[in-house]
Design a protein around this nucleic acid. Structure first.
Length: 460
RNA sequence: GUCGCGUUCGUCUAGUCCGGCCCAGGACCCCAGGAUUUCAUCCUGGUAACAAGAGUUCAAAUCUCUUACGCGACGCCA
């Protein structure tokens, strides 16, 4: 069994494409079959190597490995030509010399009359020998197929026209290449977006003209933006790699994507292995789904919370580099990541939260400092106590804080809050004793001194 | 416009094939409590939907028809 993902390289890998790829990949894996990657680059005007690279990068980051390919349609022009010639020889296709202008006028006229704009078959019987090549679509009858997600679909042949299968320059067009490739590559299940659903009857006619067996079709509903319109740039990030940049874990994105239009009862969280094991085409929804960033964030957080520290560190590398955080000196990365795991929605957040352990800062958050840094006595006392601490571990630090509370007869928060701010600069810190331990003795004392300086400066 | 496809809480969805167990369940978001050294996490609870109408039936979210709305296709793009 084989399925495929066949993007055209006219841009980066976007969310919709990624989900299509995921479904095709999951189905192949589930069947213990092969997953084929094919680059549909017949449109040479718009296809770019940069896009090919971007798609490959995206697939790679997601971890959707292909078993065959990537195949490039531009490498297969001889094969397409052969098929086009065969169709011409068998009188199943013909040359057409209608100009683009004539076609445009024809379309305008038909649209005006309220009819479907389709080619009128003008050159069908002219026996021409140059121009574009058109496929002789059957005039009568109905094309019907059973879509694995949409169910029975049928359309009358008279709704279809004679589609162009080769351009004036001889290059083949999509509807021809996709049929030839899916046949040659022995694709059993064609999984693609339902924007292709209207092409399917034309392709089926092509299969039949060629006497080829039909694959199964599974048309996935589109992904919509929050406003119900087709997902596009104005809805925010649509590129898969933008989600890496924003701090998402690939498996979280995959989990989110698989639940967009597919479900297995009430289960929300799926490991990759579970997706493969449980995936069924029949559980795919017919209706389009809206992309909801909040749920993605929730999932991401769930994944971060339960991930292996090592795994997080691996995925964090890009962010540390990007945010220019040098972790070569300072506390062990593992400990910091572990501490941040429960409090980071994204890897970007986590990296930001790491800064206080590896970088010094010049000033405190002004608003918080004004509120928290008032009493120098308690800070002074805390400093003295911490300074004399030999074994710099969280439990001892905690004891010292408690002692300060007792001696001064104040609540934990009274000293805890200023301490927290002193350590972090912005108040974003978790367990104060652990944070202090990780920040280290020297830096902790230096920052408390900074707080003291701040207080004396203000009172001047 | 024509053709195709679709329509369950704000969002993702379960249930629809084989009508009753559904005055519709789960999750995100939101709200209220609780726990906690801030935040976060965690726990408990709550709000909220079968697009509309007609029909079949003892019984319809589930079957049939009509309407509305949405999306897609209608390219020498894919």
């Amino acid at each position: 069994m084989k399925s495929r993902f066949a993007p055209s390289p006219t841009g980066y890998l976007h969310i919709g494409g990624a989900r299509t790829a995921l479904f095709a990949w999951a189905w192949a894996r589930k069947q213990q079959g092969q997953f084929v990657l094919r680059i549909e680059d017949t449109d040479r005007e718009r296809s770019t190597q940069a896009s090919v690279d971007a798609i490959l990068d995206g697939m790679n980051w997601l971890g959707l490995a292909h078993d065959e390919g990537p195949f490039y349609q531009t490498d297969r022009f001889d094969r397409y030509k052969e098929i086009i010639q065969q169709l011409l020889n068998e009188d199943k296709a013909y040359y057409c010399e209608c100009s683009k202008e004539r076609l445009q006028i024809l379309r305008d006229e038909l649209t005006e009359k309220g009819e479907k704009a389709k080619y009128d078959g003008c050159c069908r019987d002219k026996n021409l020998s140059s121009g574009v090549v058109r496929f002789k679509n059957p005039l009568e009858g109905v094309v019907a197929f059973n879509d694995a997600v949409k169910g029975k679909i049928s359309i009358a042949n008279k709704e279809l026209d004679d589609l162009i299968i080769a351009r004036t320059d001889g290059t083949p067009t999509y509807n021809l290449t996709v049929v030839v490739d899916d046949y040659d590559m022995e694709i059993d299940t064609v999984i693609r977006g339902d924007d292709h659903i209207n092409n399917t009857p034309r392709q089926i006619n092509l299969y039949q003209a060629l006497n080829w067996r039909l694959p199964e079709f599974a048309h996935l509903p589109m992904i919509l933006g929050s406003d119900g319109a087709r997902l596009s740039k104005r809805h925010g990030a649509v590129s898969v790699m933008a989600y890496r940049d924003e701090g998402f874990l690939p498996e979280a994105l995959l989990n989110y994507l698989v639940r967009l239009g597919w479900s297995h009862g009430d289960q929300e969280i799926f490991t990759l292995a579970e997706i493969v094991e449980l995936f069924e085409l029949k559980n795919i929804n017919k209706a389009p789904a809206s992309f909801n960033q909040e749920k993605l964030i929730w999932l991401n957080q769930e994944y971060i919370k339960s991930a292996d520290v090592e795994h997080l560190i691996k995925n964090l590398a890009w962010h540390l580099d990007h945010q220019q955080i040098d972790t070569s000196t300072g506390p062990a990365l593992e400990l910091v990541v572990e501490h941040l795991q429960e409090r980071s929605k994204t890897l970007v957040e986590m990296a930001e939260g790491m800064k206080m352990f590896y970088q010094d800062f010049d000033e405190f958050n002004e608003k918080l400092a004004k509120k928290q840094f008032k009493d120098s006595q308690s800070i002074q006392l805390l400093m003295t106590k911490l300074n004399s601490l030999d074994d710099w571990v969280a439990s001892n630090i905690k004891d010292q804080i408690k002692q300060v509370c007792e001696e001064l007869d104040i609540g934990f928060g009274k000293i805890g809050q200023p301490f927290r701010l002193a350590l972090s600069g912005n108040g974003n810190a978790g367990n104060i004793d652990i944070v202090a331990q990780l920040v280290g003795k020297d830096r902790t004392l230096a920052r408390l001194q900074m707080a003291l300086d701040y207080i004396s400066q203000r009172s001047d």
